[in-house]
């Protein structure tokens, strides 16, 4: 989030709400005086928040491509990469970092490639395709690994220690941003936005819309691979069900970040802000002691904040009235 990031915030009204919420939350966290702003606090925060940020990034290009393509499969996909990595790779003694990372990124990209092909050639609404992906992978994950278990490769165990800000997990995040930054500078990014904004216009103007959609999915899948790696580092093991919870969280982060689920509007910056805001909300709530009901208060407050910021979003970005 350099100066170009700041310029984006000032120019793009859809970023007003997430950026504002971010500042408010940051102030609130600082006011609560808890240890987020220490080395350990920040390191832990990065460790916990990274899977969500990456999951939100993973669905960003797919949502941007339009057709109401909310990718519901991202959570189970992270879970799938996690359990196969632990069971099939580590379970068979393959722990080489290059192989593991290649497996994660490649599997994510490959799965999304298949989903893109189904969306394009079978021509079924993307949300139905990804709903199907969600159900299939949720089931398969449990078939690969029936209960949480296994261990992450040795070299990954230190990732999850959360003792240093500059951990390999942060590196995953930086790598994802770097890839996105490069893509933003190519015509792909503009073509993606135009495809999402109005696919028929893009098609008739000579944009290869199918290629754009496939790339969007593959990039999203690769990000899901990175998300799965950071998630594996976080739990240091395999878990067939927890990954699935990232779907709703990621979609929520995206919307909190000001993206439109119908395409054309949104970006990595917004999604990242949305994900960080979600983390900050739970962090902030965890600093209060509600006794036995604290989990429930967190859930309710989280729901209310979601409702509130969506409503604010409506008032800030509503330009088009329904005639």
């Amino acid at each position: 989030m350099s100066s170009s990031g700041i310029r984006q915030v000032t120019q793009d009204r859809s970023l007003f709400v997430p950026a504002g919420l971010f500042l408010v939350l940051l102030l609130a966290v600082a006011f609560r005086g808890q240890g987020l702003f220490t080395n350990n606090g920040l390191a832990g925060a990065i460790l916990v928040a990274t899977p969500l940020i990456l999951a939100a990034l993973a669905i960003t290009p797919i949502v941007m491509a339009g057709r109401g393509a909310v990718d519901l499969s991202v959570g189970p996909l992270m879970g799938f990469i996690n359990v196969t990595l632990i069971t099939w790779l580590v379970g068979n003694g393959i722990t080489n970092p290059v192989a593991v990372i290649a497996w994660a990124v490649g599997l994510g990209a490959a799965f999304q490639f298949v989903q893109a092909l189904v969306i394009i050639y079978v021509r079924v609404a993307p949300i139905i395709v990804t709903l199907s992906g969600f159900l299939v992978l949720s089931g398969v994950n449990l078939m690969v690994m029936s209960r949480p278990g296994g261990v992450a490769p040795d070299w990954m165990l230190s990732w999850g220690a959360g003792t240093s800000v500059f951990s390999p997990v942060l590196l995953l995040l930086v790598a994802a941003f770097a890839v996105w930054g490069v893509l933003r500078r190519t015509m792909f990014y503009r073509n993606l936005r135009m495809t999402g904004a109005d696919e028929r216009m893009a098609y008739t103007s000579g944009v290869p819309v199918d290629v754009v959609r496939i790339i969007a999915h593959v990039v999203g899948g690769a990000f899901a691979g990175l998300a799965a790696l950071s998630y594996t580092a976080l739990i240091s093991s395999g878990d067939p069900t927890q990954g699935s919870t990232y779907t709703l969280q990621a979609v929520t982060a995206l919307v909190l970040g000001g993206a439109s689920l119908s395409g054309g509007r949104g970006g990595a910056l917004g999604s990242t802000l949305g994900a960080i805001n979600m983390f900050l909300i739970s962090y902030l709530l965890s600093t209060f002691n509600f006794g036995t009901v604290s989990g429930f208060v967190t859930q309710m407050a989280f729901g209310l904040i979601l409702v509130g910021s969506l409503l604010v979003n409506v008032f800030v970005t509503s330009r088009r009235a329904v005639a």
Partner: peptide, 11 residues
Amino acid sequence: YVGRDGVFKSQ
């Protein structure tokens, strides 16, 4: 300028 350039040409 929509559709004027290839997919991966720099912007």
